[in-house]
Design a protein around this nucleic acid. Structure first.
Lengths: 214, 214
DNA sequence: CGTGAGCTTGAGCTCGATCAAAGAGTGTGG
DNA sequence: CCACACTCTTTGATCGAGCTCAAGCTCACG
């Protein structure tokens, strides 16, 4: 049985179709440009806008009192972020590399909430998927799951670039950079992946990677 | 490079008000009764309905191929669950104790999606909150966070009953039952909580518990 | 070609998992 | 009402995955 309220969406790959209502509004906005590491919004700040990545990437994260950081989600081209119900931000968002963002104010969103429902549901779904990874997977399984996720979001290619440094991967997966590095080395040694430079990844044995994710 | 200034969000919708449309439909439905452990929906199943807890409680979980289980969320009285974008379930839902559920078909939801937006946003928000706990907190910090969450959801009282067994707490927090038990014992020894029987909890030192959560 | 940030590798340690057993709580039947 | 049985929980002992601390190494950049 289909969800009749909106068109079906393929994972997070194709948000363009499902948000056509929102697109009409956001497309008329100018692109705001951000440099690497630049803040888009901040924990504790009043929430005023909803955002869409036009180019580049964004990390959304929280920092605990003791300095430990958890990256809640990465957002790539076409992804919406910053959607929330509360008045104040409970996380921060930063550009990864040179990044372009379009935004609409929350006041405008009342006209397009319906169009954004699938977007929120997808974000929710991927948050739950991620709970499973960080709750019940070993280090190597987390890294394998991460590589598959990035491969998917890069369009399903087996050769792609990671757009974030190791520390971001570690903070996304709930690990340390050393453990991430060791896991990547292990996957390389097992001829499951190939590494090119510090960001390039090629999945050689896709099946083996999937098996690791349970 | 600067984002336009954040505008204050005026007249933020109250979740109770905005779900009134949904409430109107679901209130006319009969309550379905479930016994302890009974399945409400199943991983892989075609998704047909959205649910609301009338009494009792529900656990939503995923099981990995190797048998490891992760509880994604607990749902208490008044909570909606089962909202998703995909056609098929990616998790299972079970009653905890005697539980009453009202449901509406997804076909009906087209009339109330807009009303359910805050519900989805809240579920999304709590999923992210939980990512932080299982990604970057130690065992005792996770258990402390869990007790505070349950206290809040029980209405902010410091004396309440846990409605789930230790194994559910463990699978929610990404720990083992032994570790959960040890953490509870430690909190008891530190006079931060008091335990009554196997389910009863009283928070004696609320501040100390909050400090543990960072 | 030099420099520094980011990444990898190594050694040792710690927290939580695992394995094992005892204790508490609940329900059933004599 | 108590004895038994069963499940759930607690406690103990040991082990190992991943963290921490500490060097080296790479690579992108000037």
């Amino acid at each position: 049985m289909n969800m009749p309220a909106f068109e079906p969406s393929q994972g997070r790959m194709n948000p363009v179709l499902v948000t056509s209502a929102a697109l009409g509004i956001v497309d008329s906005k100018p692109i705001s440009n951000f440099v690497d590491g630049q803040n888009i919004y901040c924990d504790g700040e009043r929430a005023g806008q909803v955002y869409r990545v036009e180019f580049g990437a964004v990390r959304v994260y929280r920092v605990l009192a003791n300095g430990r950081r958890q990256i809640l989600d990465f957002h790539l081209v076409g992804n919406w972020f910053g959607l929330q119900n509360e008045d104040f931000r409970r996380s921060s968002a930063e550009a990864i590399g040179a990044t372009g963002i379009k935004s609409i104010s929350l006041q405008e969103t009342r006209f397009i909430w319906q169009g954004l429902v699938p977007v929120v549901l997808e974000n929710y779904s991927s948050a739950q998927e991620h709970q499973l990874v960080i709750g019940r997977q070993s280090a190597i399984e987390r890294v394998a799951a991460f590589l598959l996720e990035m491969s998917n979001r890069a369009g399903g290619t087996c050769k792609f670039d990671l757009f974030m440094p190791r520390i971001d991967i570690a903070d996304y997966l709930g690990l340390t950079i050393e453990t991430v590095s060791r896991a990547l080395t292990k996957l390389k040694s097992g001829s499951i992946i190939r590494l090119q430079g510090t960001r390039g990844v090629e999945i050689v044995n896709y099946r083996a990677l999937q098996n690791l994710c349970q």
